[in-house]
Design a protein around this nucleic acid. Sequence first.
DNA 1: TCTATAATTAGCTAAATACCTAAATGTAGG
DNA 2: CCTACATTTAGGTATTTAGCTAATTATAGA
Lengths: 130, 130
Amino acid sequence: MDKTLSIIKSMSDKNRLRVLNALLVHNELCACQITEFLGVAGATTSRHLDLMVNAGVLKKRKQGRWIYFQINRDDPSLTPLFRWVENRVEQCEQVKEDLQVLKQKLVISCKELSQKQRERSACANSNKGE
Amino acid sequence: MDKTLSIIKSMSDKNRLRVLNALLVHNELCACQITEFLGVAGATTSRHLDLMVNAGVLKKRKQGRWIYFQINRDDPSLTPLFRWVENRVEQCEQVKEDLQVLKQKLVISCKELSQKQRERSACANSNKGE
DNA sequence: TCTATAATTAGCTAAATACCTAAATGTAGG
DNA sequence: CCTACATTTAGGTATTTAGCTAATTATAGA
C-alpha cells in the first residue's frame, strides 16, 4: 500500500500534476524547461522531480549537465493511471491553456533558457539589496 | 485541473486510501464502521469522509442518525481510476490483510459498535485524570 | 587547473494537513 | 419536552510539505 500511496501522493501537488500533464504531451523535458514551465525556483523543481522519480512515476537521464525527465512507461501497471490523467487533460480547457504556454516557452534552447533563468535570479538578488 | 487535483488529493492520505479500498470491497459502510476500521477519533473520520465526498469520490446517505458512504459510481470518468486502485488492492497482500481485519470488525451491528466506541472514549477520558 | 554552468542538497520559514478533545447539531424515542 | 446518541464542527497542536536562498556537486570547456 505504501507504493500505491507514494504514487498517488506524487501526483497530488498542483505543480507536480502539471509536470505529469506536460510529460504526457512532450515525450521528454529538461529540468530547466520544467523549471520555466512551473515558474518556481530550480531547487523547488529539483525536489518535486526527485519525489516523482522515487515514486516510480518519472524516469530521468543525464546528458552532461542536462537532466531530462520522462514518464515511466516501463511499469505497465501505471498505464491505466496515466491514461486516466491524459483523459482529464483532454477534457479540461485550463490545462490545455497551461500546456499552450509551455509550448511557447519551448521554442528557445535549453542553453538560452538557462541563461535567462540565471539573469532573472541575479536580478532578483540585486533588488533584494534595496 | 482543480477538480482532478482534488480527486487525487482525496486519495493521497493513508487512511483515506484505506477507506477507498474498503468501499471497493464493501458496497456501503457506516461512518461508525469506518471509524472502527481506521482506528482514529470519530471527528477525524468525519473530516476525511467530508473531503472525499466534496471531491466527488464518495457519496453518502443518511438514515436517521446513521450515515452511510459508498463509492461514487455516478461519474463514469472516475471508473478507470477506481479500476486502477482495485487492481492495486488485488496485488497487495498488506491491503488484503487490512481488509480482512475490517471484515472481522463488521460482524457486530453499528449500534453495538458505536456503544463500544463510546465506552472506549469514556475510558480514555477517565484515564486522563490520573 | 581554473572558470562557468546545470542541477542538487542544506537550512530555514510559512502554509497546509492529520489528529485530538470539547461543544454543537440533528435524529430517535419515551 | 427531555434524554440519549451518531455525527459534525470548533479550536488547538504536532507534523508534514512547498517554497526560497545559499552552498555544494557534477560536468563542460579553455
